[in-house]
Design a protein around this nucleic acid. Structure first.
Lengths: 343, 343
DNA sequence: CCATTAAATGACTACGTAGTCAAAAATAAA
DNA sequence: TTTATTTTTGACTACGTAGTCATTTAATGG
């Protein structure tokens, strides 16, 4: 027994045309919102289409128009709340422009062949790379196929892609300034993977200011951008270096892990150790943490990203933009002021 | 000036065929891994393909095979860590089977027309609905188009879809038993949206056991499955009902919010109030919370879901399965034992 | 070496739509 | 009414692939 009978036929524009007594062209026109259709026929077509449950086939359309209305989003750690938020907001923005999202989870740090294949085969119009590295070879592959690539929250020195990110260097400098101002003496930095632009810039800015302000020792522990990594690093750090009074964490989720580790040891935040994060994820505001952190202007960054994305898709520009945003410090209670307050 | 020159031509199977001195059919065979191709020509085709950077066009393929290798995942609150995890795991499972994921964020509780359209137009082979409601009308739409729908972590009484979920009723009963055993007297339940199967079953099981054990009052606050909602509900609850000594939360993220609210008020967990959650998200294990909760066998549930999904896609079965899994209690420190311990 | 069978190959068509172009219909102008 | 102009319409083709079928080539058996 053929089981096809169990399902209704999936009707095509031709079926609708026949039923409505018009040509396939006219049906196509109606669904492209082409104005050159008489009200009468338009109405008839829509009626029939509704009755037959007709929907244009996106693949056939893509084939002929060479537009897929699909954007690929490459992400590594969707469980990082920062990136959950990023995915959600990108979805809203792209959806509002009539685009669909193919979600690609990058298995390793660098985008793999398999992932590139997927995106190429589906002919995505653009790719937003957030959480993963993009090798020059991969960037080249996309470019050769006319696929726009935008880096979000990261950049590569030499790759010729547009990128939108927070000025991590400047932010780290301001954070360092703030911490020194607050009277801290002994600093540690728990970083993410050492080979990303984010990590490099944050470390660089932080170190520069410390040096400039005559703090010559900075203890560095690098791991990855997870709670577990932050927990473990902080634990080791605090055991080996009892005198640390200030911990700059590569991002908020690391900071939360670090705070828990510090408290488990029996130390108090911020009395014994100050902790500062980066990103301003929602959880940082929870009373259990009340994390002082740096807020990235997430929505603005994403708006810019989407703007540039469509600019490049539509005008096929070859000049790329690098947009660096500022952000600002969000002061809560995880950093202690050791200075005497003067009235 | 035409800007097309800026990009390499996107080659087709025909280009490859010409260049390799074979027919388009042969190129197609090579890329379908059809065995009926001589090693010699296969090698030649692959060489040329690599040189031209050729990739088969997924849309053309979909058009002719009527297989898209795309699964839609509908989710409402990706920021809920439970669902972030769900998305990640589903990605791994589906990806392993060569399928791609179109991510759909449901704007409202119920899947909207717009979202259905998107999935239909892209001819997804199946849809996994996790976090959103699926009206009968919507289910019907999918079914008519031969699209398999599986409900994950929920079900509807009458809809004819397969569903995989945790036995919430039984779990809630065991939770209630446990809490009563531990000596609690005054119970409250902070629920999610009251119209989902999850909420209904958890409440039902909880209430039944309480009644059975002669606890006749249960204070109920309903909100949604977010930290903020849990925080607010707990705050109101604890102010209005000072005597509550035990709080059953609809899920873990609500529980975390509730715990923070309780602590902000100045009460201690579990000394003053016990809190229990549901899901066993990672954050519950963090030392700041150490939440006692019910673990859903997430991976097994998702394995089942994917199994059923492909079973229905491949064999086009019309009989639907409902799989209910058990799960188990994870005891941490957010519930106090008020009973005297006897040795 | 020829007959038979199996493997490899290419010509051709279908998939469902968009869009071009020319013809037809409707409208305006004379 | 006739002619010029604009709007609507349908026939037709292209998009890039999979797969059918007939043909050619290679392999096998006697």
């Amino acid at each position: 027994m053929s089981s096809d009978e169990l399902f209704e036929k999936i009707y095509t524009s031709e079926d609708v045309a026949r039923e409505a007594g018009v040509s396939q062209s006219t049906v196509s026109r109606v669904f492209r919102s082409d104005t050159n259709v008489s009200e009468k026929k338009k109405k008839r077509v829509l009626e029939v289409a509704k009755r037959l449950n007709y929907r244009p086939n996106a693949h056939a359309r893509s084939l002929i128009t060479r537009k897929t209305k699909i954007i690929g989003i490459v992400m590594r750690d969707i469980r990082n709340p920062f990136y959950s938020a990023v995915l959600e907001i990108f979805y809203d923005r792209l959806s509002a422009r009539g685009y669909n999202i193919v979600f690609i989870k990058s298995e390793n740090e660098e985008i793999q062949e398999k992932e590139i294949m997927q995106l190429l085969e589906y002919n995505v119009e653009g790719v937003i790379v957030t959480d993963a590295l993009l090798s020059n070879a991969a960037a080249e592959r996309f470019k050769r196929n006319g696929i726009v690539v935008i880096l979000f929250n990261r950049y590569t020195e030499d790759a010729e892609n547009s990128a939108v990110f927070c000025d991590n260097y400047l932010a780290a400098k301001q954070i360092a300034d703030y911490l020194v101002e607050m009277g801290h003496k002994s600093f540690a930095f728990i970083s993410g993977p050492p080979n990303t632009s984010i990590t490099i810039d944050r470390l660089k800015g932080f170190q520069e200011v410390l040096k400039q302000r005559n703090v010559h020792e900075l203890i560095i522990a690098s791991g990855n951008y997870t709670y577990e990594s932050g927990f473990k690093s902080a634990q080791e750090l605090m055991v080996d270096h009892r005198d640390i009074d200030c911990l700059f964490c590569g991002n908020d989720i690391i900071a939360l892990g670090a705070m828990d580790a510090i408290r488990v040891i029996g130390l108090k935040i911020p009395e014994d150790v100050s902790v500062i994060g980066f990103d301003n994820i929602r959880m940082g505001a929870w009373p259990s943490y009340s994390l002082t952190t740096w807020e990235q202007p997430l929505e603005e960054m994403m708006d810019s990203t989407v703007d540039i994305l469509f600019q490049e898709i539509n005008h096929r520009t070859t000049t790329h933009k690098t947009i660096m945003m500022k952000g600002h410090l969000v002061v809560r209670t995880s950093v202690k002021s050791k200075k005497t307050v003067l009235h």
